[in-house]
Amino acid sequence: MAEEKQGAYVEDEFRRDTRYIPTRITADGQPDGFAAEAGRYRLVVSRACPWANRTVISRRLLGLEGAISMGICGPIHDADSWTFDLDPGGVDPVLGIPRLKDAYEARPDGYKPGVTVPAIVDTTTGQVVTNDFRQITEDFATQWTAFHREGAPDLYPEALRAEIDEVQQLVYDDVNNGVYRCGFAGKQDSYDRAYDRLFGRLDWLSERLSTRRYLVGDTITEADIRLFTTLARFDAVYHGHFKCNRSKLTEMPVLWAYARDLFQTPGFGDTTDFDQIKAHYYGTHLDINPTGVIPKGPDNSSWLTPHGREELGGRPFGDGTPPGPPPEAERVPEL
């Protein structure tokens, strides 16, 4: 299945299919023969997808735009594939294909689990190299260092990796994937369990972030990127569409301030497209929203209001600097 619902039901509980392509792109090309090389690979994403949005943020913060090109699929797709309907003629200008499925099918191993974004395609062969969203961003931070911009932050500092891994696993289980377990629950009991886990973890995160600006250490790390993409979609889609309705993000003061702090940091808000986010969830998940009607709200201008998180200290980019403006072709609509 192409959409983010890719998975199965076990006792009416949604279980995400995590059989991702294990191939990695590394600095020296080991162990799979794919070396980090400027101009060779194309990152394919959708602005709507939170898993893909992570890779867009990481690529921008690290300044990898010049080394890794980016193809952007539209927010609505069919049951088979994400498509390049935002491009002239509906064809990706670099890969020359109308459907991301074509790059998956070019693989010699007959990969079956589904056509997902993000995906990194080797432009020399037209084949998807990897779609493992968790590994992609870690490798951006650690394997592509030769191509990082001057002043790029360390998003996965070695001294903090154990804590980052621990925190982001909790976030993944209960929040990133937890909203989907709520939205796609097959029975009341499954929904209730997912709902309680989700808001229990959000309460835990609120407490953790009440005295610290970022999740781990005093700078932005991989953990913050992974939490942000779910928070950015919370009021727009998860609160109503996925029935995550104990509280809106705007009603959780610590998390709302934290999310605004990140949104107003270069690399976060300027990679977030609320219109495409809503179009995807409400227009693709027709089993949940049969009419396909896309709500006009909420009013997103409040994302730009002061957050006051500077009082907690911390340095967003550590010893580094903010990225410059995004390339013209990659800009999202301003609020």
Rank of each mutant, 00 (worst) to 15 (best):
Asp261Leu: 12
Gly267Tyr: 12
Gly240Gln: 09
Gly269Pro: 08
Thr230Ile: 11
Pro266Trp: 11
Thr221Met: 10
Ala236Glu: 11
Glu251Leu: 10
Thr271Met: 13
Thr229Gly: 03
Asp261Asn: 15
Ala223Asn: 05
Val237Ala: 13
Ile225Arg: 02
Arg246Pro: 01
Tyr238Ala: 15
Ala257Leu: 03
Gly269Leu: 14
Leu227Cys: 07
Glu222Lys: 08
Thr229Leu: 08
Val254His: 00
Ala236Ile: 04
Glu222Asn: 11
Arg246Met: 02
Gly217Lys: 07
Thr221Arg: 06
Ile225Lys: 01
Phe228Gly: 04
Thr271Arg: 14
Leu227Glu: 05
Thr230Cys: 08
Gly269Gln: 10
Pro266Glu: 10
Glu251His: 05
Leu262Arg: 09
Thr229Asn: 12
Phe263Gly: 04
Pro266Cys: 12
Thr265Arg: 09
Asp261Lys: 06
Gly240Asp: 14
Asp273Asn: 15
Gly240Tyr: 04
Ile220Pro: 00
Asp224Cys: 07
Gln264Trp: 07
Asp275Thr: 13
Thr265Ala: 12
His241Ala: 15
Phe263Leu: 09
Tyr238Phe: 15
Trp256Pro: 00
Met252Glu: 07
Ile225Ser: 00
Asp235Thr: 07
Phe242Arg: 04
Tyr258Pro: 06
Thr272Asp: 03
Gln264Lys: 12
Phe263Met: 10
Leu215Gln: 05
Thr219Phe: 00
Asp275Trp: 00
Leu262Ala: 11
Arg246Tyr: 01
Arg233Asn: 10
Phe234Leu: 15
Thr229Asp: 05
Phe263Pro: 01
Met252Arg: 15
Arg233Asp: 10
